[in-house]
Design a protein around this nucleic acid. Structure first.
Ligand SMILES: [Zn+2]
Ligand SMILES: [Zn+2]
Length: 616
DNA sequence: AGCACGCCGACT
DNA sequence: GTCGGCGTGCTC
């Protein structure tokens, strides 16, 4: 008789505790740290995460797990101490910590689902029944529904007791149902010639023979491609039934960017400071935990340092994790890394679809990707044996999650690095005070890149006091003579100009000509912004809109004057100022696409990017 | 978070 | 009596 196996399970409920379950013999070979398990929890059945094995159960009454949901663990055991640390440090229930660290769309939800019974259908015909119950039965007659949906459908007007009464009278049956998340590896059906068959050309029609020839020629080909070549699904079915070809599923890797990037052909020679930084970090990889603060001015070539030290980690058989604050920047960094490292890169960020994110996650778990580039949540990527964690633009506030589980990506990075004996590199041209202090205290080591690459001079900065424009109207308040001159000079020299303005929209201040009040959002107490493209006022906080001809809500009759200067207006005015220049606006309204910076890096013509990139 | 239990007032 | 509203406590 083997000793019973116990596991500690974290369940995504707001309870600051794990629970111990027994693993029955049937699951002893499939239950690992990092898989999800279905467990009985009170009267419910929930999915939980297997965190660790244990020998001594804390209480006497130990239940058994019902099922193991994953073949492959979703994370490696070395994440468990990090989960526990985060749960304590950020005061967040451990089950929900684990849940928020894993990609969305995996959670299996079990819902109490109500289903109408034959007796219920009969009752529905008899007509003499409580109207509320009748409505519920009619609703369920169209198909079974989770209890929550019933509540939602009837706007909480149906008391639970009513449903329970229906159950008691056996008009409905209530049982627990699993609703699986949508994210599963996307598979494509492929066909190939069945090598085991005895192919007799005279046993098929000429069209069927064409198909077989084509498939034999191709080796393997997706069913979708076969259909594209004009073969019907019927003919495919027939040939399959005759045993000449076989179908198989191939997992599709959804490349979020789908483009091939030519490899780097030459390596830039590092500057003296770069070389020192690279050497220092490289020597440390594999020698234990250390945080470096890479303090490099803009244009000093931090990315080159990142790539060199990533390469060092890879050649020491370790993995690398690169955190970038903005999704827009991920694309840039990814392109450079892909050019040097090829396909062993996974990308994780919030704009991937659940399916794409799941694919990337599993590529990392299966060690098909050893370099991960991503935004904040990528710090939880299931990499094993991490050699280096790089946090680019370390000072950036978007590393701090500001809802729910309020972790700080940069601090978690430091802790993960510490637990994994990895090297952590925090890069910034303007380090955060906290980390600079750590550097001064020699807790972190500061590496400086004081010069720009190729000894390019630092940009000339001229501060222009806008107070000199106080009396001006329209664009002259914003575009000073100095700026106009600089823009025109750039245009004549065939160079780009970038203009930054931290106000989205066209007019940012709708003021009533009659009473002088500013029109605020009725929900949010901030000014409504006029947007030219939708020709309406919009609240940037809640999205509430009002039509363009809205009258002052305060005095009800006053016209609104569109004051204040936003990016759309700047775009219009600059176009008027230099009519031949190509002007592109880059703000949240135009940046929704996955690759906003591509135009920026490709076009060397005369482009003005009027924008506010950094933060909403 | 669910879900039970239990107590109490408002109805048949 | 019974229904249902809500406060309290538990979940391996
Ligand atoms: Zn008014
Ligand atoms: Zn609003």
């Amino acid at each position: 008789m083997n000793a019973p196996i116990y596991i500690n399970v974290a369940i995504a409920v707001p309870i600051d505790q794990t629970y111990t379950y027994q693993v029955p013999e049937t699951f002893k070979d499939s239950c690992f740290t990092g898989v999800r398990v279905m467990v009985p929890f009170g009267r419910q059945t929930l999915s939980g995460y297997c965190l660790e094995f244990t020998d001594d159960p804390p209480v006497d009454k130990i239940k058994c797990i019902f099922d193991v949901l994953d073949e492959t663990p979703l994370f490696y055991p070395d994440m468990v101490p990090l989960f526990k640390w985060m749960a304590r440090y950020y005061c967040f229930p451990i089950g929900q910590v684990v849940k928020s660290c894993l990609p969305d769309g995996l959670s299996v939800i079990t819902a109490n689902t109500a289903k109408i019974t034959p007796a219920g259908r009969k009752k529905l015909l008899s007509e003499n029944m409580n109207p509320v119950e009748q409505k519920v039965l009619q609703y369920l007659d169209k198909g079974q529904q989770p209890l929550k949906n019933i509540q939602k459908h009837f706007k909480n007007k149906v008391p639970m007791s009513c449903i329970r009464r229906l159950e008691r009278h056996l008009y409905v049956q209530i049982e627990k149902k699993e609703i699986r998340g949508a994210a599963a590896p996307k598979c494509i059906q492929y066909a190939r010639f069945n090598p085991g068959c005895q192919f007799k050309p005279d046993s098929v029609t000429s069209r069927q023979q064409e198909l077989i020839q084509m498939i034999r020629h191709a080796g393997e080909i997706s069913v979708a491609d076969i259909r594209k070549q004009g073969f019907s699904s019927q003919i495919l079915k027939t040939v399959h039934q005759k045993g000449f070809l076989e179908f198989f599923d191939k997992e599709l890797y959804r490349d979020p960017f789908g483009e091939t990037i030519p490899p780097d052909t030459y390596l830039p020679i590092p500057t003296k400071h770069q070389a020192t930084a690279i050497q220092t970090i490289e020597n440390r990889i594999g020698q234990g935990f250390q945080v470096y603060l890479l303090y490099g001015v803009t244009g000093s070539g931090k990315t080159e340092v990142y790539m060199r030290i990533t390469n060092a980690a890879i050649s020491k058989s370790r993995t690398a994790l690169i955190l970038v604050p903005e999704i827009a920047l991920i694309t840039q960094v990814e392109r450079q890394f892909r050019a040097r490292f090829g396909d062993c890169i996974a990308v994780l960020h919030s704009r991937l679809s659940n399916g794409e994110r799941f694919d990337q996650w599993m590529r990392i778990v299966r060690k098909q990707a050893t370099i991960v580039i991503g935004a904040r949540s990528a710090i939880f990527a299931p990499l094993e044996n991490i050699g280096i964690i790089i946090v680019d633009e370390e000072h950036d506030a978007s590393y701090k999650q500001s809802t729910q589980f309020r972790y700080h990506g940069r601090d978690v990075a430091a802790m993960r690095g510490k637990m994994a004996d990895a090297v952590v590199v925090l890069g910034s041209a303007t380090p955060s005070i906290q980390n600079y202090y750590h550097g001064m205290q020699h807790k972190y080591q500061i590496l400086q890149l004081p010069n720009r690459i190729h000894n390019r001079p630092m940009p000339v900065i001229q501060v222009v006091d806008l107070k000199q424009n106080v009396g001006m109207r329209g664009m002259r308040r914003i575009i000073t003579p100095e700026l106009e001159h600089a823009l025109k000079k750039n245009y004549e020299n065939n160079q780009q100009s970038l203009l930054f303005l931290n106000r989205r929209g066209f007019a940012t201040l709708p003021v009533c000509v009659q009473c002088g009040e500013t029109m605020m959002c009725k929900n949010c107490d901030i000014a409504m912004i006029f947007h030219k493209n939708i020709h309406a006022y919009k609240c940037h906080y809640c999205g509430f809109t009002r039509p363009h001809n809205t009258q002052c809500p305060n005095c009800a009759t006053g016209e609104l004057k569109k004051l204040g200067y936003g990016t759309q207006r700047l775009e219009q005015d600059v176009s008027a100022l230099i009519p031949d220049a190509r002007v592109t606006r880059l703000d949240q309204d135009t940046t929704q696409k996955k690759d906003p910076l591509s135009t920026y890096s490709k076009n060397c013509g005369i482009i003005k990017l009027i924008s506010w990139l950094a933060r909403k």
